[in-house]
């Protein structure tokens, strides 16, 4: 069983392919890190996979009708928009919209999902705060909680940990990993290769619109790949505390 499968997904901007014939599939239990330099096509790939962009090739998600898709995958965009000064709890409850029958209010199960998301992201003390008045990092956690409240088998998040402090970055990656271990799947794009190496079960490396490498972190973050795609050298070690990856020098 797969939660998402892409077959030769291609997105063009004019003639030039921004995402070039990318194929992979994601199964339950995977915490997939999508890595690549700026402009590699990570966001475009994720949006096209969700059916938010016109594309060629197949995506199992974009083929679904809108409502079924919303029950299958939750999406946390990179732009952290919160348009109105709503309370944190209200904002997180927006994640229940795809599950609510027409005209219904939040039901018992919806409240439970919202409470679970709040507990997971450690936002208990923020419930009644106005979301627009929080710091950038706090807003990011609230928006992750919103996506969690959607309670979908697949969670797709675009740079969710950018701008978080180290403790919250690690805690968030642990939440994603825990979701995977519960039998759901997560696809997360991120720039922190160290965190990707430690917390993801699998990495997808993109460069110039193409999928360069796909596999467990040690197989993807090879010196050769890292130099070719990111243009840096790096230090890698297996330690008693788990893998350590640290980019070192720019090679070009």
């Amino acid at each position: 069983m797969t939660l998402l499968s892409l077959n030769a997904l291609t997105v063009r901007r004019g003639e030039c392919p921004v995402v070039d014939a990318v194929s992979f599939s994601v199964s339950p239990g995977e915490c997939v890190g999508l890595i690549g330099p700026n402009g590699a096509g990570k966001t475009t790939l994720l949006r096209a996979a969700l059916g938010l962009l016109p594309h060629e090739g197949l995506s199992s998600l974009s083929a679904l009708p809108a409502r079924a898709r919303a029950a299958q995958a939750a999406w946390m965009p990179q732009s952290r928009e919160i348009a109105w000064p709503v309370e944190v709890e209200t904002l997180i409850a927006l994640g229940r919209i795809p599950h609510l029958p027409r005209g219904a209010r939040l039901r018992q199960e919806d409240r439970a999902a919202v409470d679970a998301a709040i507990a997971r992201m450690g936002l208990e003390g923020f419930r009644t705060r106005r979301a627009t008045e929080l710091s950038g990092g706090e807003q990011a956690r609230v928006l992750i909680a919103r996506a969690l409240a959607q309670a979908t088998p697949l969670l797709i998040a675009d740079e969710p940990i950018a701008g978080l402090d180290p403790a919250n970055q690690i805690a968030t990656m642990q939440v994603f990993r825990a979701l995977a271990e519960e039998g759901r799947a997560v696809i997360v794009s991120l720039h922190d290769l160290g965190l990707a190496a430690r917390h993801c079960t699998r990495l997808l490396m993109m460069g110039a619109g193409q999928l360069v490498a796909d596999g467990p972190p040690p197989e993807v973050l090879t010196p050769d790949n890292v130099a070719r795609v990111f243009g840096v050298t790096a230090f890698w070690a297996e330690t008693p505390q788990g893998p350590v990856f640290q980019p070192l020098e720019v090679t070009r």
Partner: peptide, 20 residues
Amino acid sequence: GRALDALTLGEDAARAMGVD
């Protein structure tokens, strides 16, 4: 109403929540 609520999170997030 419900679609406007979803739009609080931006157009992309709203679409991914099933808003047409």
